[in-house]
């Protein structure tokens, strides 16, 4: 038996909204420690890694580890029915064929129960090594989201350069070229604050289309942490009370 009660159901709605355009069918791994998932987008350019810690749920029980194959598209449809103030219970019997979702209103005035049919999906779990990155940028998630969105008007590729003092977002397109440079600072204003942890200068190129999809998670966390090393995927980490959502994006290289 697996059962998890989340008092703040809105966070689950936001998580699923943040990944549904990247991954459509995923295996959730449920253990006594956490609910987790790892899935690549269809073109294998991006990877989503989600961990929700059991200790952060109001109630949590998982008698035996289980893999739950879920259609994210259909889960998103059902979660739309949950109110923003609703609590959400996730429940599955051992060797389950359905995932039961229960949405309860704040004053217990209304309860909705749905059984989502589970899928049997091939597991393609990748081993991602723990690694030190050359550069780590911590900044406002809404500011990063705004920069990516605005630069998308110029071209489809973002050139990201980080040194010990600043981070530069540069683009080059048919209409011209441009860049936005932000210096490391410890401003009281969260949208201006930028923390750099850089051992080596790094300069890499990434598809803005994917960064824009990742930035849907800016509603989950005020900050985003970008981890960069030459010639490996960039990691965008959004941390929140319940756990963390990480996106990996393979770089573009000059032909």
């Amino acid at each position: 038996m697996f059962e998890a009660l989340l008092g703040n159901g809105l966070i689950l709605k936001k998580i699923i909204e943040s990944i549904k355009e990247l991954v459509t069918e995923v295996n959730f791994e449920v253990t006594s420690e956490a609910i987790s998932l790892q899935a690549m987008d269809a073109s294998h350019v991006a990877l989503v890694v989600l961990v929700l810690r059991a200790s952060e749920f109001e109630e949590y029980r998982c008698d035996r580890p289980q893999t739950l194959g879920v259609s994210i598209t259909n889960l998103a449809k059902l979660l739309k029915i949950a109110g923003n103030d609703d609590s959400i219970i996730l429940r599955a019997e051992d060797e389950a064929h359905v995932l039961t979702l229960v949405f309860t209103g704040k004053n217990n005035e209304k309860m909705c129960e749905f059984n989502l049919n589970l899928l049997t999906l091939d597991s393609e779990h990748l081993g991602i090594p723990e690694q030190e990155y050359s550069a780590e940028v911590t900044m406002s998630s809404s500011e990063f989201s705004r920069i990516c969105r605005e630069l998308t008007q110029v071209t489809d590729t973002l050139n990201l350069s980080v040194d010990k003092e600043s981070v530069k977002f540069a683009v080059s397109g048919d209409i011209g070229t441009g860049s936005i440079t932000m210096k490391a600072n410890n401003s009281d204003k969260s949208e201006e604050k930028l923390i750099l942890n850089v051992s080596d200068t790094v300069s890499m190129a990434f598809a803005l289309r994917y960064l824009n999809l990742f930035n849907k998670a800016s509603s989950l966390s005020d900050e985003v942490v970008l981890s960069l090393s030459p010639e490996v995927p960039v990691v965008l980490k959004f941390a929140f009370d319940l756990g963390e959502l990480k996106y990996f994006l393979a770089p573009k290289i000059a032909e």
């Binding site: 690549m40 073109s43 294998h44 350019v45 991006a46 990877l47 990748l126 081993g127 991602i128 090594p129 590729t157 190129a205 598809a207 490996v232 995927p233 990996f248 393979a250 770089p251 573009k252 290289i253 000059a254 032909e255």
Partner: peptide
């Protein structure tokens, strides 16, 4: 011209 790499080139 930039070529897009894929995730499984890095992790498996």
């Amino acid at each position: 011209f930039a070529v897009q790499l894929i995730i499984i080139d890095f992790y498996d």
